[in-house]
Each structure stands twice: as structure tokens, then as C-alpha cells.
Computed example of a mutant assay.
Amino acid sequence: MKRFALLLGGPLLATEALRARLQGYRLLAADSGGRHALALGLPLELWLGDFDSSPPWLQQILPAPKEVLPRDKDLTDGEALVRKALDLGAEAMLLLGALGGRLDHTLAHLELAFSLAALGVQVELSDGLTRAFPLLPGSHTFPLEPGAPFSLLPFPEATLGVEGARWNLPPAPLKATTLTLENRALGPIRIRVEAGRAVLYLF
């Protein structure tokens, strides 16, 4: 499977666990996401963007092949990077620096994740500490440890249920609810999305 880790511009906690996990991933960065490559100490295959948010000192010290985009364009640098990864045959994408920071970018990244999932790409978003997964209609199993906290969010509405949690939920139509926040896994959880879209958030 062709796995790509895309370094985006949001906050990212560069941990040893994350460095170890990235073994076997091809690393690409969008504009200011290049700073995460320095923090991780890992080489970039490509650094893409209009570079309006990457200071000159970063561009001078980060050794990476660059693809410069025009500043006036109809997509973000992150979306352009997602398209580049698809062109390179990505089957799984880890979107790092995709959560937190600017709310508009976080929501745009979630929409990108759903579009990738619809194409059959395995996708996960993370800030290095928390993780999010887009869920389309169907059954989804996640091998969580007992006691692991999670939230399950309709995005923006869904008919969904969960088993294997402290608070199980039979399939129910939900939207704009706190009912499915801050649950706890008893072990692997099974989520059924019967209609709509949802986000699994691990924290």
C-alpha cells in the first residue's frame, strides 16, 4: 500500500511515537507545514505551496525539492498537496497538522478527508496528540484499548450507533448533539453509520 504523510500548516506535536510511525510513509509538506519536517527530523520528498507563510530562514535551511504555486489560486496549498499525493498513487494518507489552529482550515481538512474516503483512500487526521477519522455509511471497527476516550460526531448529521463502549448507542438519527461526546471504549469499538457522515475523534 502506498502511504503518504502530508504535513499541513496547523499545530503538530512531534513525538518519538509519531517519528516511529512515519517509517514507511512518503513525506510531503504544504507551505508552512515544512517546519514540521524540521521538528520531526525527517526528509521531505516534496515541499509544495505559494510559500507566503514560510519565512525565508525556513526556506534556506530546509533541504527539499520545491514546487512553487501561484498565490492567486482557487484551492489551498493543503488541497493542492492532497491532489499531488493522489497523482502519486496514494492509497492511505495521514494528514498531520490538520487539526487545531485555524477553524476554517480544520473544517476544510475534514471535508478533504471525506472526499478522500469516498475515493477509497484510507485517511486519518492528527495533530500528533489527537486523531480523527471520517466515517461514511457502513460498519467501522477500531481496535481501541479499554478505557480509551473517544467522541463520535455527526457531520453534520447521521444515523449511527456504537457498540463496545461504556455507553453503547443503538442506531439513531443525530445532529448537533453532545450525546455522543466523551465516551470510553471497553476494547475494540464497532460503529455503524446507516446514513450521513460522522467523525470519530480520539483524544
Score class of each variant (00 low, 15 high):
residue 109 H to F: 09
residue 195 A to W: 11
residue 121 V to F: 15
residue 61 I to W: 14
residue 125 L to G: 01
residue 20 A to L: 13
residue 194 E to M: 10
residue 110 L to P: 02
residue 71 R to P: 10
residue 47 W to F: 07
residue 118 A to M: 11
residue 101 G to S: 09
residue 166 R to T: 09
residue 167 W to R: 12
residue 39 A to M: 00
residue 103 L to W: 14
residue 81 L to M: 13
residue 73 K to L: 02
residue 106 T to A: 14
residue 34 G to L: 00
residue 41 G to N: 04
residue 191 I to L: 11
residue 63 P to Y: 02
residue 20 A to M: 05
residue 49 G to M: 03
residue 102 R to F: 10
residue 140 H to C: 08
residue 141 T to F: 11
residue 156 P to K: 01
residue 26 R to M: 03
residue 123 V to E: 03
residue 199 V to Q: 10
residue 23 Q to K: 13
residue 25 Y to H: 14
residue 85 A to I: 05
residue 31 D to V: 04
residue 111 E to P: 00
residue 131 R to G: 00
residue 21 R to I: 00
residue 177 T to P: 11
residue 115 S to K: 13
residue 201 Y to F: 15
residue 177 T to G: 09
residue 152 L to C: 04
residue 95 L to A: 06
residue 8 L to C: 03
residue 66 K to G: 02
residue 163 E to N: 06
residue 159 T to D: 05
residue 140 H to M: 11
residue 43 P to R: 02
residue 32 S to R: 15
residue 137 P to H: 09
residue 168 N to C: 12
residue 81 L to R: 02
residue 165 A to Q: 06
residue 151 S to K: 03
residue 105 H to N: 09
residue 190 R to M: 00
residue 62 L to V: 14
residue 114 F to C: 10
residue 7 L to S: 02
residue 101 G to H: 07
residue 197 R to Q: 15
residue 96 L to C: 14
residue 64 A to W: 07
residue 81 L to V: 09
residue 102 R to G: 06
residue 123 V to Y: 08
residue 19 R to T: 01
residue 33 G to W: 05
residue 155 F to G: 01
residue 32 S to K: 10
residue 107 L to F: 15
residue 159 T to M: 08
residue 186 L to V: 07
residue 79 E to F: 12
residue 70 P to S: 11
residue 18 L to G: 00
residue 14 A to F: 07
residue 41 G to W: 06
residue 48 L to H: 06
residue 31 D to L: 02
residue 102 R to N: 10
residue 75 L to I: 06
residue 46 L to G: 02
residue 104 D to L: 04
residue 165 A to L: 08
residue 116 L to R: 03
residue 95 L to W: 08
residue 23 Q to R: 14
residue 20 A to Q: 15
residue 49 G to W: 03
residue 159 T to H: 07
residue 170 P to D: 09
residue 195 A to K: 15
residue 40 L to C: 01
residue 105 H to P: 08
